[in-house]
């Protein structure tokens, strides 16, 4: 019994250790070697204002994207869960299709919309509302738009699955005894959804935190985030150590956020089960 378990697990375990854990360690360890102090390279990194800005921008984009997808996703998922089976299926397909479509395609769509000669600028100029094209592309704004577009379907999907477990009878009972719709929503529905909201938020937050394609295509050279900084330091500048420092910081933030939020999800799960 035991032996066959070891036999079946060891190939996978070995592959993960050799192909993932060792390469990650090989990259991480040299960043903790300094002439005077083991965190020297990190102190140097945080000494630069530009780098601090990159970290703050990365976090801000992830926070704003999560909040927007959550506030658009909640009503959408609620609406979907109340649709008849046939329409629900049609809408689910429309939501699933972008998730499975390449990120390059989805970001490229926004270049054609937000660009200098893009759909929005053209439209507003034809109506003579503006006479010079606005700068929409290659800004923090365009990165947020692109990220929301990228992650909204994922948020909706995680919310829909928790809405489908939602107990609508409790909701009806609450309104029968005279609770106002807003009270019903905040006191009865929202608590039942907290796990789905957290799961969706983890996916969206970590996804936009570590995303490369969207800031690369929609952010331009001025609006760097950690992922594009990592690419620039390594591929463009060939500075492996600095790139590794960025990689460690990005990984630590992502793992930290995931661990904390997963812990929160578990706590809520336990509370809801009671």
């Amino acid at each position: 019994m035991k032996r066959s378990a070891v036999l079946l697990l060891s190939p996978g375990l070995l592959l993960i250790i050799v192909l993932l854990i060792l390469p990650i360690l090989q990259m991480f360890l040299p960043t903790f070697v300094g002439d005077q102090f083991f965190l020297e390279k990190y102190l140097n990194f945080f000494h630069s204002n530009g780098n601090i800005q990159v970290i703050l921008r990365t976090l801000m984009i992830a926070v704003i994207t999560t909040l927007i997808t959550l506030s658009l996703g909640l009503p959408t998922a609620y609406w979907m869960s109340r649709l008849g089976d046939r329409w629900k299926k049609v809408v689910s397909i429309i939501v699933l299709f972008p998730i499975l479509t390449n990120a390059v395609v989805r970001n490229f769509a926004w270049i054609t919309i937000l660009g200098k000669n893009g759909v929005i600028n053209n439209f507003l100029m034809q109506l003579h509302i503006i006479d010079k094209p606005m700068t929409l592309l290659y800004t923090n704004f365009s990165i947020v738009i692109g990220s929301v577009y990228l992650f909204l379907p994922i948020m909706i999907t995680s919310l829909v699955s928790s809405f489908s477990q939602l107990n609508f009878e409790v909701e009806e009972a609450a309104s029968v005894i005279g609770a106002r719709p807003s009270i019903v929503f905040f006191k009865v529905i929202l608590p039942q959804l907290s796990v789905g909201m957290l799961t969706g938020s983890i996916l969206v937050f970590v996804g936009s935190l570590t995303a490369y394609t969207t800031p690369q295509l929609l952010g331009g050279n001025k609006n760097m985030v950690l992922a594009t900084l990592l690419q620039q330091q390594s591929i463009t500048l060939g500075d492996w150590t600095s790139a590794s420092v960025v990689a460690v910081i990005l990984t630590v933030i992502a793992v930290l956020v995931m661990t904390i939020m997963n812990y929160g999800t578990k706590l809520m799960d336990r509370r809801n089960a009671k």
């Binding site: 854990i21 090989q26 990259m27 793992v255």
Partner: peptide, 18 residues
Amino acid sequence: SPALIPEIVIGFALYQAL
């Protein structure tokens, strides 16, 4: 764990190691 580590970090680490 491969899903915990940012994809771009995996790519960079594999490039260096492999």
